[in-house]
């Protein structure tokens, strides 16, 4: 427990900054909608006239950005990226920091097993990720509600954010697994971010070209897209199963590699 509270305290400041970032992103993003919506249908036509690649990069695709919900769907892509970056960096640093700050010689000579060390660290990271998610949900629901004139979208947003939480878990445990496996604690965070960026770019490339559509199973950014979750059939079973598999594999790898690791001190 002491380790858990220590980690919460240590991550408090960065979590607050991230939450402020998310609030600004949601509020700022949705306020742009206020400007666009007054011009009505024309925005959709303008977007439709753009090349498909550009649409893919902006994440609009088939979303109707003249409605608050559709517009939020575009914004959600960027919220997902932020959440994923936060989660992967948190996951990798919470594990690698004992080596980076050379405190491994303090912590790991205490009467606590490495499994317990990892467990408490991951629980603390989970709390962080959950708070990040809640802040995103509350601010999103409030901002969409403010501009929305159709049916209430809170339920849709809740499902979307549930998807984002799963995405956060995938990247959190990806980060912790990489930090446990690597011999160079310094490179852990950058390596996880590189993987994250790789999968994100892949998801955009899939949007640009339908011929590589089958690669969507490889990038979690395709698992919980707004156009599917909000305006399609909700969360898809195949993606839920894939997510569960990734989470379990990364979790297992985190414990296994951390237990067998020679601490770099």
């Amino acid at each position: 427990m002491n380790l858990f509270f220590r980690e919460l305290k240590a991550s408090r400041k960065s979590l607050i900054l991230w939450c402020i970032g998310i609030l600004l992103m949601v509020a700022g993003g949705m306020s742009k909608f206020g400007g666009i919506s007054s011009s009505g249908q024309s925005m959709n036509e303008l977007m439709g006239a753009m090349p498909k690649a550009l649409q893919a990069i902006m994440g609009t695709g088939s979303l109707d950005i003249s409605t608050a919900g559709g517009y939020y769907g575009v914004l959600f892509l960027y919220l997902m990226v932020m959440a994923a970056i936060h989660a992967s960096m948190l996951g990798s640093t919470i594990v690698s920091k004992e080596e980076l700050e050379k405190t491994a010689e303090f912590l790991l000579v205490k009467p606590i097993s490495r499994n317990k060390v990892i467990t408490w660290k991951l629980i603390a990271a989970l709390v962080n990720v959950l708070l990040f998610n809640i802040v995103t949900f509350v601010s999103s629901a409030a901002a969409v509600e403010y501009y929305n004139d159709g049916k209430n979208l809170n339920g849709d947003i809740a499902i979307l954010l549930a998807g984002m939480f799963i995405l956060q878990l995938i990247f959190l445990f990806l980060g912790s697994a990489i930090a446990s496996a690597t011999r160079k604690p310094k490179s852990a965070a950058s390596l996880s971010t590189a993987v994250l960026m790789g999968t994100f770019l892949l998801s955009i490339m899939i949007d640009m070209s339908t011929s590589i559509d089958f690669l969507k199973y490889l990038t979690p950014f395709k698992y919980f897209e707004a156009k599917q979750v909000m305006f399609g059939g909700g969360l898809e079973a195949v993606f839920l199963i894939l997510s569960a598999a990734f989470i379990l594999i990364f979790l297992f790898a985190t414990y296994k590699f951390y237990k067998d690791k020679d601490m770099a001190v």
């Binding site: 700050e101 010689e105 303090f106 009467p111 097993s113 001190v265």
Partner: peptide, 20 residues
């Protein structure tokens, strides 16, 4: 039995680093 025996070990590393 690492975690068990460490209850009775005190260790001073050559270079002392602590949490900021």
């Amino acid at each position: 039995y690492g975690s068990e025996i460490k209850k009775e070990i005190g260790y001073l590393p050559s270079e002392v680093f602590y949490y900021e």
